[in-house]
Amino acid sequence: MKVVVGIPSFNNAETISHVAKVAAKGIMEFFDGDGMIVNSDGGSSDGTRERFMETDTFGVPKESFVYEGIPGKGSAMKAIMEFSLEQGAQTVVFLDSDLRSVKPWWVERLAGPILRGEADYVTPFYLRHRFDGTITNNVCFPMTSALYGKKVRQPIGGDFGVGKKLLEIYLEKPEETWKTDVARFGIDIWMTTTAINESGRILQAALGTKIHDVKDPGKHLKGMFLQVVGTLFELMVTYQNRWMSVWNIEDVPIYGETPEEEIPPMTIDVDNLKKLAKETLVVPEYVNESAVREVKEDGTLSLNSWVDLLYRSAVQYRKTRDKTVVENLLPFYFARTARFAEEVKSLSDEEAERYVYEQLGVFLERKRLLKEEWEVEDKG
């Protein structure tokens, strides 16, 4: 079998049928029907699985099951990986179950390079609103780029192509891995970082606009932030021998032309972010006083202070392995997101995108201080 399209879900009855139908069209149009669609569900109570199984998939076989393990996206995706290997699939395409902008050719963009032997892992390259993807823009994209030297724009994008070789690498990891936040929202950054360090054969697929259930960072993203950043810090320990020798950032090739599509408008509650930053602020001893002062005065945080704080927090996490370190970052994340929103609010999405890329220089420049502090902990 060439391709399995895996759709993890939890209470996505309103959108999953659309994703399944489009996935089926992609398998029929680009892979002569040689594939199947798999729904791995977290015990939805809204009829998600029933809606999925009722969907007309034009003869493409489909399967739905409730996964076992810790409730979360990662557990759902692990079950899809295991099922796909049992079916002899050459590649798996993961699609988020709340996608509204998915097209049949997305399946080819994510699976084609793997089937042709050009890559083991394909990440999405989206057009997104400048207020969308705040964890990506302020943490995962710059940190992944600076640490591992690969400019992967959407390391936690949700929609990925994964080859058989990498599936086996993921599933050969100790079972304890799947009892951590990798079983939850940590899965995407874990998959991407593992792929960079243990495969290296990565492409990005131009998918156009991503339209999905947008979440306000101050109201909906606390759990995701904690799980993603905690996993990112844990991976820094795992791959410390690799990132400490990386001092250049390489472009990652993009497969396909980016279509010209309109990006839907969205807003975030900046005043609420500032309020949350001030009200939830805690001041651990390793936090720079200037960063604390910025948050107390204005509820926002400059880029330089944010980078320093992320790196100091990573060192502290490595020292203690205490999740409180990540929790202490939350008010600063709210503050940095508020400042970022103010900095780009008068820009076009294209100009804001350039601004996001420009931040990489600060992350890379200050990485030498991170390395020095990390090595001090080694000697200690």
Rank of each mutant, 00 (worst) to 15 (best):
V270R: 02
D298Y: 12
E285L: 05
D308P: 00
L281Y: 11
V287M: 10
N288Y: 13
V287T: 03
A314W: 04
N304K: 14
V292D: 04
V292I: 15
I268K: 04
T280P: 00
G299R: 11
N272E: 12
L281D: 06
L301D: 11
D308E: 11
L309I: 08
L276Y: 10
S290C: 01
V295K: 09
T280G: 02
A314V: 00
L310Y: 08
E294S: 11
D269I: 10
D298T: 15
Q316I: 00
L276N: 13
V282I: 14
V287S: 00
S302R: 14
V315N: 03
N304T: 12
K274I: 04
W306A: 11
V315A: 01
T300Y: 07
V270Q: 02
V287Q: 00
V270K: 03
L309F: 13
L281F: 12
S302E: 13
L276R: 14
A314L: 02
A314C: 05
V287E: 00
V287L: 04
Y286P: 06
T280H: 11
L301N: 09
V292F: 08
K274T: 06
K275N: 12
V292A: 06
Q316D: 04
Y286Q: 05
L303C: 03
D269R: 05
R312C: 05
E279V: 12
E279Q: 15
V287H: 00
E285W: 05
K278I: 13
S313H: 02
Y286R: 06
I268S: 02
K296W: 02
Y311D: 03
E289P: 03
D271C: 03
D269H: 11
L276H: 04
L309R: 04
S302I: 05
S302H: 07
V315C: 03
L276K: 14
